[in-house]
Simulated scan of single mutants.
Amino acid sequence: MADVAAIILAAGLSRRMGARNKLLLPLGGVPMIRHMVDVYARATTHPVLVVTGHQADAIEAAIAGSFAITVFNADYAQGQPTSVACGLRAACDAATMLIGLGDQPLLKSHDLHLLLETHQAGDQTRISIPVRDTDRGNPIVVPASLRAQLLEDPKSPGCKQFTRAHPEHVAFLTLSAPGFYADVDTPDAYSALMQHKLEETS
């Protein structure tokens, strides 16, 4: 396996879920964030770095004993770019980094392996982003050579603005697996996910 690290963003306020933190909702008998750590751990060569913020103590408790380490983003309330920057600064010196979300429970380890294999077969100096029609997915693959550039803009660190401003550093990979494009932001989305799981096991 290539030298791959992973950053999972788990600092958000989870406002659209209401009173509950979506990352702590149960999935297969474990909190969603623990499920996601386990998925990423099967595709990486370093401990999974989880960026915490909102309800950090509960997130840390949920992943205790897993193949993960945490870093706290004190600026989490200012939005996701600050968590990306926090993760990039704290990540190990792996050649390749996956940056993903904590609320993509349809994502599977073999999806991550396919993403990495496709990235490695192409231009490894670019940020690889999964796409399906007009949808951009997550996680993205970031080569270590671009880490410093992603942190250059103090007003908008991270990947979102950078990838739009610098298309020459981006490769779009056509990948169809639904896990890249589905997240769980609302109670209705979580209910639909659980109903699907029940149908799979019935």
Rank of each mutant, 00 (worst) to 15 (best):
M1I: 07
A2R: 13
A2G: 10
I8K: 01
I8M: 02
A11C: 06
L13Q: 10
R16G: 03
R16F: 06
G18Y: 05
L25A: 11
G28D: 12
G29A: 07
M36C: 08
D38T: 14
V39P: 03
R42L: 10
T45Y: 01
H46T: 09
V51F: 05
V51C: 08
T52E: 05
H54S: 11
I69V: 14
T70V: 10
V71S: 07
A74H: 11
A77G: 07
A77S: 08
Q78Y: 10
L88Q: 08
L88P: 02
C92R: 15
D93L: 13
A94Q: 01
T96L: 13
L98Q: 02
L98H: 00
L98R: 00
I99F: 04
L107V: 01
S109M: 01
D111T: 03
L112G: 03
L116M: 14
L116V: 05
H119E: 03
D123S: 02
R132N: 15
R132D: 11
N138T: 08
N138I: 02
V142M: 14
P143F: 10
P143S: 13
A144S: 12
L146T: 00
L150R: 07
K155Q: 15
P157F: 00
G158C: 05
C159G: 02
K160W: 02
K160Y: 04
F162M: 08
A165G: 14
A165N: 14
P167R: 12
L173T: 08
L175G: 01
G179Q: 05
A189C: 06
A192G: 11
Q195G: 05
H196S: 13
K197A: 12
